[in-house]
Design a protein around this nucleic acid. Structure first.
Lengths: 337, 337
DNA sequence: TTGTACGCGTTATCAT
DNA sequence: ATGATAACGCGTACAA
């Protein structure tokens, strides 16, 4: 493949002159520039980013490590990351971990070898040891959506605790008191925070906390389905169910339908994470909505700012607000006759 | 950063020996190997993929160029691509073009510079000239979902023509005769094929083709909304609407609702591309479903096979079947009184 | 304004 | 089984 020297030869200049033309660095006589550009054209020369990266130790590559791009929440985040990266001349490598710690560890390893400029990661397990190598090699990193205890690192999260608190309070105001929460994995910070917000709201409103109404499991649909089926068998059954994420909500929806119960008349349903076209599903879900696109943008911007050297201070945390979206799936508890 | 020679020095061997240990290439005395591994450990050496790529001219990087990862259809495809890539030791660079030819051209250019091993692309415009540089540099390429006239290249598509034909025939059998189709951009092969399948079904069933019932535009939701609003104002209005993709279908749904019409009693609605949780939306949409995940897998596999040198023959085309999923949004036309 | 010399980390080739 | 040397394409430091 034709390289910078071939172009130089053809244009009758040296390689460095060609380099200067390509990168607009240094001053080049306009006639010389003309000849160089012509040579580039004629030879179909394409600069080799690889060689450039090798030399400069900058790949302009950032990795986005998340559980599953198929989840609309992550998709939206990914779009925010990609848009921001593209605007700043970076490319994004996409990595799905499926909440599998081994897969994640392997990705981190390989990304390190690849010398990506930085990593944006929603880690599947709350374990700072996982990031030792990143730290050791001073690879810039942004924690996205999930905190990791004891790992000092720029972080972008939603205020899940407050979101859960507001939603729970909303349910209480509507008259629901036996509210079950189907939370995610106890190891993941988002799940913990949502349970905390839920408990806080109960306490603040003098509603007793019933441990039996707090279920922890995976963020997958099957967990939502199974847990809700189980919950709804109890007597008295919960008046409302608060799903820890969008997949759990969908599982819950199926479980409730299968039991022949009506929403919200028989049992109310609230969720975390909005679903695209949420207004089209029936019943439309009341949810705590995260600003996913903004999270992606913030994470990418945070990372890129670090990379640019514009900010060298200590780890920063960005907390985005959540929004309560009230739709049909939560009603109003009728007064007891 | 510590390099292969530092490791070599520490282990008291030469660089090439370290290389052989890392890559399991060539024979290395087990004691020597032991010492090398220990040195790697002690120094925290991380092999430099960049240098390797530079030397070997293989980046193990493939690019996925599509319009918008936010569309569940593309998301699913992306997951198929990433899974397959990961299994084979490749990484995926994600590129959103937003159906913007300039953005696409720019991506192709930069990816070429980056020396990705191959490109999987759903091109936004049917123009083979766009691919001249790829051809010139013999960069392996797979066309995904959309054909490009005159560009010989491995291709993975759905049989959209047959899908549209089957769906249209289904509607006719249900008694719908004034069927409007809101197709995508006339320049994109999928939109063309879907219109062809639609026309074929009408012809085969002796239903006259009315050009006024064929609307072409973008694949965006706003086009679905506007076009359907327009269509439903005509007299007599269409009995059924066939949306060219999922976004158009959602736009159509909103338009129909806004006009206060019932689905399917007043107007039936069918779509192309299923929506995740399609059964939850109300009314559940009857759709032509594409095997998106399989498309992604097939495209990645196709590309990787090329890259491995296992197949050097001429361009191949993989056509995946589509599935008709019948749900509530299409009914049965009542006999005229 | 333009050029020379060198080094980045790895591996292929050839040699021992 | 192990090593010496060169080469990949580019940009920086320095020189002219």
């Amino acid at each position: 493949m034709v390289n910078i020297r071939d172009v130089a030869k053809r244009a009758g200049v040296s390689a460095i002159t060609v380099s200067r033309v390509i990168n607009n660095s240094g001053a080049v006589n306009s006639a010389t520039r003309e000849r160089v550009n012509q040579a580039i054209e004629e030879l179909g020369y394409v600069p080799n980013t690889l060689a450039k990266s090798f030399r400069s130790k900058q790949t302009s590559l950032i990795a986005l490590v998340l559980s599953d791009i198929t989840n609309p929440f992550w998709t939206t985040i990914a779009r925010g990351v990609e848009d921001t990266a593209e605007k700043n001349g970076f490319h994004v490598i996409l990595c799905n971990t499926d909440e599998n710690p081994e897969k994640e560890a392997n990705y981190i390893n390989v990304l390190l070898q690849r010398r990506v400029d930085g990593i944006i990661i929603a880690s599947t397990i709350n374990d700072k040891n996982r990031f030792l190598m990143l730290k050791r090699h001073a690879l810039p990193c942004v924690l996205l959506d999930r905190r990791v205890d004891g790992f000092k690192c720029d972080t972008v999260v939603s205020d899940g605790r407050e979101g859960a608190r507001k939603m729970t309070e909303h349910l209480i105001r509507r008259g629901y008191h036996r509210i079950a929460i189907v939370a995610g994995p106890p190891t993941i910070s988002t799940a913990q925070e949502r349970v905390e917000g839920y408990c806080q709201a109960l306490r603040e409103n003098q509603v007793p906390i019933d441990e039996g109404l707090i279920v922890r499991g995976s963020y997958r649909q099957d967990n939502g389905y199974e847990s809700v089926k189980q919950l709804l068998k109890s007597d008295p059954r919960p008046q409302a169910i608060f799903a820890g994420n969008n997949f759990i909500a969908v599982g819950a929806l199926h479980a409730i339908r299968e039991l022949g119960l009506r929403i919200p008349e028989d049992v109310a349903l609230a969720g975390f994470d909005d679903i695209p076209q949420g207004t089209l599903i029936s019943p439309a879900l009341t949810v705590v909505s995260q600003r996913a696109y903004e999270m992606g943008v913030a994470a990418a911007q945070s990372l890129i700012t670090r990379l640019s050297g514009k900010y060298r201070g200590k780890a920063r945390e960005i907390v985005l607000a959540t929004d309560i979206i009230i739709r049909e799936s939560c009603g109003q508890v009728r007064e007891r006759p």
